[in-house]
């Protein structure tokens, strides 16, 4: 029997990390640099993009930024995924310049500005691709009140949950005759199916889940005190890993890949907030 390729769609595309700025789980000199340093370096590089007004300076900036990007052992395929949105912007800016100034005079400024915009955003992409979410989360926990950071983490935690819910509800409704496939949704006459058969049950589910999550958190004392201990679980994981008692995580969905425990980093302090 011939192999039949698995069905694609949202599930497969999310699982394969097709969208840009996903964390790249390999080692590189940039990966090893601290998050704060990368942030400052990135901001400097982004700011310098404003100075690329001549071909020479622009070329130099492109070279420096590309070196930074490639030093993170990121590939050209990664680069395309990170900048393709800005390429669509370029497709708007360059014709506009040509329209206003004519092709002869408008082409260079259009290309220059488009390149500068990419150079402005690219260091941010490098930061996201080389910084584990656990580090970003740790930083957020230090900066935000715990009541807000909790909500951010719940939001991230339930991305795969609701992704599955969307898939399950869509499957059930398709089998009842609802037109929910992407190609069917290109026809606006099928949009009522999207809202009635998918969005509405999904919102009912969200309401119920919000009840359950709130109860679960409250049952474990969340929000009862003004202060809360800030416990760094990745330290425990690291110690358990060294003692050989903890399995390595097995990331599969993109959110899991992003949220691996920390490995090989400096021991962070445990504090009470």
């Amino acid at each position: 029997m011939a192999n039949v390729p698995a069905k694609g769609g949202l599930r497969r595309s999310l699982r394969s990390c097709d969208y840009g700025c996903q964390f790249a789980a390999h080692d590189s000199p940039v990966h090893r640099v601290g998050a704060g340093t990368k942030l400052v370096l990135g901001m400097l590089l982004s700011a310098s993009a404003a100075g690329g007004r001549t071909p020479a300076t622009l070329g130099a900036l492109v070279l420096v930024t590309l070196c930074y990007y490639l030093a993170a052992r990121l590939t050209l395929a990664d680069l395309w995924r990170d900048i393709r949105l800005f390429m669509f912007q370029a497709a708007l800016v360059i014709p506009l310049y040509c329209l206003v100034h004519g092709t002869g005079k408008g082409l260079w400024p259009g290309i220059r500005i488009s390149t500068q915009i990419i150079l402005f955003y690219l260091p941010g992409a490098v930061f996201l691709r080389t910084t584990r979410s656990s580090e970003v989360m740790r930083g957020l926990r230090r900066v935000l009140p715990y009541r807000v950071s909790f909500l951010v983490f719940v939001s991230v935690r339930f991305v795969p949950f609701f992704f599955r819910e969307i898939a399950d509800i869509t499957a059930a409704q398709r089998l009842r005759g609802a037109k929910l496939l992407p190609r069917q949704q290109l026809n606006p006459r099928n949009w009522p199916d999207l809202f009635n058969c998918l969005i509405l049950p999904l919102m009912v589910r969200a309401l119920k889940t919000a009840d359950e999550v709130a109860r679960s958190a409250e049952a474990r004392g969340f929000g009862a005190h003004r202060e809360r201990t800030f416990f760094q679980a990745d330290l425990l994981i690291r110690n358990a890993g060294e003692a050989g008692t903890a399995q390595q995580s097995e990331p599969s969905a993109p959110t899991e890949k992003l949220l691996q425990g920390n490995e090989g980093r400096a021991v962070p302090r445990c504090t009470t907030r």
Binding site: S46, Y121, L122, G124, L128, L140, V152, S155, L258
Partner: peptide
């Protein structure tokens, strides 16, 4: 916006 950053969708800083 914060969730976007955590999930790598916030390249615009």
């Amino acid at each position: 916006s914060l969730t976007s950053v955590l999930l790598g969708m916030g390249a615009s800083g």
